[in-house]
Design a protein around this nucleic acid. Structure first.
Lengths: 192, 192
DNA sequence: TTGCTTGTCTAGCGATGCTAGGATCGAGCC
DNA sequence: GGCTCGATCCTAGCATCGCTAGACAAGCAA
């Protein structure tokens, strides 16, 4: 059995390598540069090896997205647990969210912009995605205000953050006023 | 001169045909299906003809985006001018925006999701885009609230709408509660 | 009619995602 | 220890993509 276990370990290790390399390449040169050939060359295997791990390029993007969702959830929880008071917590949450999107544009794209073949808002949604939403809900739920469903409020707040993130990064919004936009958003949406 | 004028007319007509066909094909089968070959076949010309009108596929997407921006601006102005009272106007504006995105997903993608090679938030931003933002600003500026820059408020509101539009269409948000999300958003953001 | 510009098409280039089929290597049995 | 056979990996190739060079035809001016 030991031999098979070793092989499984090596296989899992190689899969991590594929995902990490895809992510790295995407952050360096954009997702367009992540071709199966280049990716294969970087991991020092031939192209078909990728297809023994993933169904295709889409699934690789999806794997990067899941990794990113887990990281984002952790980052959100780290900041919110360090902040005291609902208002400060929500502001910190918003900043962390936008900061994550700005620092990991390729990962953010994999999560929300590109087609990673992931299901959302269903019961078969992957765990990391549900958990990231849960992380948002934890802090946002307490400022939803009376009579407003916490999940609905979280959806709206999240959509606003997502809009700010994508429009800013696409050059649709001037980056200079980013902080003022966050303050305005939190000030209006959160019922402190 | 008459001959040249006729040729120019025919050329302009063919350019409109290209853009309209690209848009139609994209709405029917998605932008992935809009290849230069298929597009050329549909307009009953050969591939290189496309390149005598546009620098490449990106510019065709950009042309569809501009057309869409003009339509959206018109749609927004039509509803807001029909509504009286700032609050009703803003609600109608939000509904129209989301409705446009839902009814013309491919055009909306061309405007904000895909790379159409368009500049934003610069002085060299194409007129239709500036005008669409202006249409938003006209109604949103009057509910920005005291001491809040109308343009900044418009950016935030727009980002929220954009987030709702994209996340809903990508299946990230359950479509059922769309109307309640709009009410929540308008109720909180707009200082009536 | 002749020559030239303008317009269009055929054919092809390099690159893409993905796959079929052959080569290689090592585990496990006699 | 040698052999067999299955798992693993690679070479080579397919269809398709965006885009372009160069041949060819049509229509204008002289």
């Amino acid at each position: 059995m030991s031999v098979q276990e070793r092989k499984q370990r090596e296989r899992a290790e190689r899969e991590r390598l594929i995902v990490a390399t895809a992510r790295e390449l995407a952050e360096q040169q954009g997702w367009d540069a992540v071709t199966t050939r280049r990716l294969a060359e970087r991991i020092e295997y031939s192209q078909p090896v990728l297809y023994s791990h993933f169904r295709g390029k889409r699934e690789i993007i999806g794997a990067v997205a899941l990794e990113g969702a887990a990281e984002m959830a952790a980052a959100l929880r780290a900041t919110t647990s360090a902040a005291d008071g609902p208002r400060t917590r929500v502001t910190a949450l918003a900043r962390t969210y936008l900061d994550f999107a700005e620092r990991n544009p390729a990962v953010y794209d994999a999560m929300f912009q590109l087609d990673g073949g992931l299901a959302f808002a269903h019961e078969d949604t992957p765990e990391p995605l549900k958990d990231a939403f849960a992380a948002l809900l934890e802090s946002l739920g307490e400022v939803a205000g009376d009579g407003v469903h916490p999940a609905l409020f979280t959806e709206v707040f999240w959509a606003a953050l997502h809009g700010l993130a994508t429009l800013t990064r696409a050059g649709r919004l001037p980056p200079a006023d980013a902080e003022r936009r966050v303050e305005l958003l939190v000030g209006r949406l959160a019922m402190v």
